[in-house]
């Protein structure tokens, strides 16, 4: 029910923005559709946009189930993407690919560690710390890729390009179709997470902490440890998302590597609510909007529109959440 309200609000908001911008909604809808789902190429593009949203969304979702709002997913995504690029460039071939993925995961977890530790042991709010860490992550990767990590022959702030042998292979590559195996990894991860939440004692404990930390304490659950771990794993998944972005799509790391995937994924996770499997359709929705949004550029619609929609989703879902709390009180 809550999800339906949110999705309707999401679509209405999107159309509303277009109308506000003085664009015919019918024409916009047509362009949006053609650009995102109208051809094999468009669908492939939408799935490409969906992949980082799915992974980052799963990261945010995981922390959210533990009662933590990991706004820092953008920073973890950036660090993961950056670290995996460095490793993939240093170690060639499939071994390098594997190491690069591990490096991305580790970098994401590391970037979430301060926020997790401060939340668990110093009770500092993760929203504040992760916003700060995002700023640091953007500045840090911008600096590194402009300086020490810049490719020798490049004028722009970018690393060298990873050779094809060190990249994630495509799942389906027969033009105009092109689907990366990164998407498959995301889908598998999603299935595993849904199962883990329902069937593993650790998943039960994680969600108990998220739903009622004091009851969790009475149930003998180590709330601090669960919070720290949840943040680390959330960051690790964000880092994996960044690594897949590098290894499957970009082939390098550069300034402006993420157009705000981390931010959009907050909307994805909030829309998914309590069901991990819903992260898939929600990230698809945002992926389609994002890809279709690119086509709307022709009509003069700026690319940042999906960010606006994600922001609205966050606002609306917060309203619903706090209204319920107000009623409970």
């Amino acid at each position: 029910m809550k999800q339906v309200v949110l999705i309707v609000a999401c679509v209405v908001a999107f159309i509303g923005m277009l109308v506000l911008g003085g664009i015919s909604p019918v024409e916009a809808a047509q362009t949006l559709f053609t650009g995102s789902l109208g051809s094999p190429r468009a669908i492939s593009g939408s799935l490409k946009e969906t992949t980082p949203l799915l992974l980052a969304g799963l990261g945010v979702f995981f922390a959210l189930r533990a009662g933590l709002f990991n706004i820092g997913i953008e920073g973890q995504f950036l660090l993961g993407g950056f670290a995996s690029a460095l490793v993939a460039l240093a170690v060639p071939g499939p071994a390098g690919l594997l190491l690069a993925m591990v490096a991305g995961i580790a970098a994401g977890a590391l970037w979430a560690l301060p926020a997790g530790w401060i939340r668990a042991y110093r009770n500092g709010h993760e929203v504040i710390t992760t916003i700060m860490l995002n700023s640091v992550a953007v500045a840090l990767t911008d600096f590194l890729v402009a300086g020490p990590a810049r490719a020798a022959n490049q004028t722009g702030a970018t690393t060298a390009t990873i050779p094809t042998s060190g990249r994630l292979p495509a799942l389906l590559n027969s033009p105009p179709w092109n689907v990366s195996s990164g998407l498959l990894l995301g889908l598998i991860l999603c299935g595993v997470m849904a199962w883990w939440m329902k069937r593993r004692v650790a998943g039960y404990e994680l969600q108990a902490v998220g739903a009622n930390p004091s009851a969790a304490e009475f149930a003998g659950i180590n709330v601090r440890k669960v919070r720290l771990n949840a943040m680390l794993i959330s960051g690790a998944i964000g880092g994996l998302g960044g690594a897949i972005q590098t290894l499957a799509f970009e082939g390098r790391f550069y300034q402006g590597f993420s157009p705000g995937y981390g931010f959009d994924s907050l909307g994805v996770a909030l829309l998914a609510g309590s069901n991990a499997l819903l992260v898939v359709p929600m990230s698809l929705l945002f992926g389609v909007l994002s890809k279709g949004g690119t086509s709307l550029l022709i009509l003069g619609v700026p690319k940042g529109l999906t960010n606006l929609v994600a922001g609205l989703v966050i606002l609306i879902s917060a309203t619903i959440r706090y209204r319920r709390q107000a009623q409970d009180a």
């Binding site: 739903a211 009851a215 009475f218």
Partner: peptide, 26 residues
Amino acid sequence: PTEKRIELGWRILPEDRLQEGIISDW
């Protein structure tokens, strides 16, 4: 830790049922 005491067979019916005893949404 609490977990260990529960393992030994300690059980509680807490003071504040909603805050300490149950998870309402579950």
